[in-house]
Write a protein that binds this DNA or RNA. Structure first.
Length: 298
DNA sequence: CCGACTACCTGCCCGC
DNA sequence: TGCGGGCAGGTAGTCG
């Protein structure tokens, strides 16, 4: 479930275990995820202390004490879970096939936690293997290829209506694809784009340029969209925080957030805009589903 | 430059 | 009960 709010939730969930911990052993259960891991991945992590965790867009960053940062992306199905204490293999379990979940445990960080809290395993699980991990230099992160062209964070102070007006001016691209473009805003995904458009009563099919005046200034609708983006992300992070324990300890593919979507995956249901009376439709844009209400989103 | 389309991979759900 | 098709939160590449 990894869009920005989910990655932020993962970061917060992992921080207590990982911050200050030492990587005692790194287990690669396969040499690649979506891409091959760096050949020296294990060697460069082993023995390092973790200074802290951070996030950029949908990327989780693990900062190490030698100036290296592990850059991790969860793809579509990636999740982390924590197992505390010594491994306790069940007696008689030796010949058991691994559970189907364990089958997709691809990377395991064995850490010694700070302040004598003992050992833990931080386990990266990713059935579809669209995620990846890489190494970068922390003081040069902006130069990291995936970050070079990333747009601003939705919650940062550089995302405002004037900025979006600049990006949207002259663009015939539909709002849906424009907002999914990580170069425009970093961290929005399919769910929250649908939700933000619904909140601001804008159709996903609307051409981006139509939210900009002839003089290049944001129309009111763009102001409202900007506020909706901010609010939907902030709300989701807040909701994630409250379900954090479950999210980290289960595989996280289902969960809390589902209950808070207003249009995403609600094809055929009544629109939740008060007094609207429309129905949620599903269309395909850029090969991906858009959910919206034809009646109140213009 | 743009948009359209494909690829990557596994699991799940639905209809037959 | 099994099988085929479609679908899934992501990014990156190619092609016209």
């Amino acid at each position: 479930m990894p869009e920005l709010p989910e990655v932020e939730t993962v970061k917060r969930g992992l921080s207590p275990t990982m911050e200050g911990a030492v990587m005692q052993r790194v287990e690669l259960r396969r040499p690649d995820l979506r891409f091959p891991l760096p050949r020296d991945f294990v060697a460069r992590l082993t023995g390092r202390q973790i200074i802290g965790l951070a996030r950029r867009a949908k990327y989780l960053l693990i900062d190490l004490d030698d100036g290296t940062t592990v850059v991790a992306h969860l793809g579509m199905s990636g999740s982390f879970r924590i197992e505390e204490g010594e491994r306790s293999d069940q007696p008689g379990d030796f010949h058991h096939a691994r559970s189907k979940d364990e089958k997709h445990d691809h990377v395991i960080f064995h850490v010694e936690q700070s302040q004598g809290r003992g050992v833990a395993r931080v386990i990266y699980n990713d059935p579809r293997r669209f995620g990846f991990m890489d190494l970068a230099l922390r003081n040069d992160l902006d130069a990291y290829p995936a970050f070079r062209e990333l747009g601003p964070e939705p919650l940062g102070n550089t995302l405002d209506a004037a900025y979006l007006a600049g990006r949207f001016a002259g663009k015939q691209q539909p709002l849906k694809t424009a907002l999914l473009d990580q170069k425009v805003i970093a961290g929005l995904g399919n769910i929250y784009v649908c939700e933000a458009l619904w909140r601001s009563h804008l159709s996903p099919k609307r051409a981006a340029a139509t939210l900009v005046t002839a003089t290049g200034r944001p129309k009111k609708e763009l102001q409202s969209l900007t506020e909706a983006i901010h609010a939907v992300i902030a709300d989701a992070i807040e909701a994630g925080g409250s379900s954090l324990r479950d999210h980290i300890q289960t595989d996280g593919t289902l969960g809390y957030f589902q209950h808070s979507f207003c249009v995403y995956d609600r094809e055929g249901e009544a629109c939740r805009t008060p007094g609207c009376g429309g129905r949620v439709e599903r269309i395909v844009q850029g090969g991906r589903s858009s959910f919206y209400c034809h009646h109140c989103q213009k």
